[in-house]
């Protein structure tokens, strides 16, 4: 099949996501897009650009400014047989909907002993690094991953964003879909007419290496790849595992990697304390204990509110902080 003209050169993650929504709307008349400003405006990040025009306001729904209402009515629409894709405008605005997500969306399938399904996708632009005001830079993945009944994924690049969103929308389970907003404008080649290389919940070895495994997802994958590149100049071969899915986690891929390298450093933007890294470190230790040459180290945000943008660079893990942890792990 010929590559469509729009996709004959690299596209942004925003475009890749937009195309995923467009195709999902096209493929299934029950698919709906709903959220604040997703209609005429095309969303504050333009992820839904043009969809309102092409699919109409019955399919691409501008909602009242009420996050609990958006998720709560999405649940009702799902009960009526629809497949809503909800946009929460920014990470820090999901909390009014937290109750609906955790007490209703996550638990209703089990409450009904499987009689009903809740195919709701909740898209959230998450994490920092774009110089934003408060509540626009948060990494709250651990809250959602902690809740049974939800699936949680976070792509790191345009192609994954595209395919994972289509897979999330097709899933009969509720999926929290975390979009690394500072990677929205990264470009990569995408052929939307092809097929996904991986299942939604499979991890990917983004770079092979033999000395240490860097574990990351979403926005930190790029930082880890850059760190691996820099370390290579010093003769260190770092492997980078892009988890992609945070619930469930592909521990098998992770285990294979760490058993080979003997060392692991987990990197995320969220505060280290009780973050995904804590669970990952515990599981890696359980699975790879006899292969480990060093404790699993974690690099992440500090136990403080996300700081004002002028100092966010000090809060966020960067290449130097990752390499500092690598040095400490290698010193064991």
């Amino acid at each position: 099949m010929a590559v469509e003209p729009e996709f004959d050169k690299p596209v942004t993650m925003v475009k890749a996501l937009n195309e995923a929504l467009r195709r999902s709307l096209d493929e299934n008349p029950k698919t709906l897009v709903m959220g604040e400003d997703v209609g005429r405006l095309g969303g504050v990040f333009r992820v839904t650009d043009g969809l309102h025009k092409d699919f109409g306001e019955e399919r691409v729904i501008d909602t009242p400014l009420a996050e609990s209402g958006i998720v709560g009515t999405a649940i009702g629409l799902a009960l009526r047989g629809y497949r809503p894709v909800v946009e929460i405008q920014f990470d820090g605005f999901v909390y009014p909907a937290f109750d609906q997500i955790v007490t209703q969306l996550a638990k209703m399938h089990a409450r009904a002993l499987g009689h009903i399904k809740l195919p709701v996708t909740i898209r959230i632009p998450f994490a920092g690094g774009i110089g934003a005001v408060e509540h626009h830079s948060e990494s709250h993945e651990a809250y959602f991953a902690h809740t049974a009944g939800l699936k949680v994924v976070a792509p790191s690049n345009p192609a994954d964003a595209h395919w994972m969103l289509r897979q999330a929308i097709a899933s009969d389970d509720p999926v929290v879909f975390l979009e690394p907003k500072r990677r929205y404008w990264d470009k990569a080649v995408l052929d939307p007419t092809g097929a996904p290389a991986l299942g939604l919940h499979q991890a990917r070895v983004a770079r092979s290496g033999s000395d240490l495994t860097l574990v990351a997802y979403g926005p930190m994958v790029k930082v880890c790849l850059e760190a691996a590149e820099a370390a290579a100049e010093d003769g260190l071969k770092l492997e980078v595992v892009d988890l992609r899915s945070l619930s469930p986690i592909d521990f098998d891929t992770l285990e294979q990697s760490v058993k080979r390298t003997g060392r692991a450093v987990v990197v995320h933007e969220a505060p280290v304390f009780l973050g995904m890294g804590a669970e990952l470190a515990a599981r890696i230790t359980e699975r790879c204990f006899y292969s480990l040459e060093a404790p699993v180290l974690r690099v992440g945000g500090y136990f403080a509110p996300y700081p004002p943008s002028r100092v966010e660079d000090a809060f966020l893990p960067d290449l130097d902080r990752v390499l500092d942890a690598v040095d400490r792990a290698m010193a064991f």
């Binding site: 609990s68 209402g69 998720v71 709560g72 009515t73 999405a74 649940i75 009702g76 629409l77 799902a78 009960l79 009526r80 047989g81 629809y82 109750d99 609906q100 007490t103 209703q104």
Partner: peptide, 12 residues
């Protein structure tokens, strides 16, 4: 909570 589910169902 159910008032929102009812409303969404009605929208459907």
């Amino acid at each position: 909570s159910q008032t929102l589910h009812a409303t969404g169902y009605a929208m459907g």
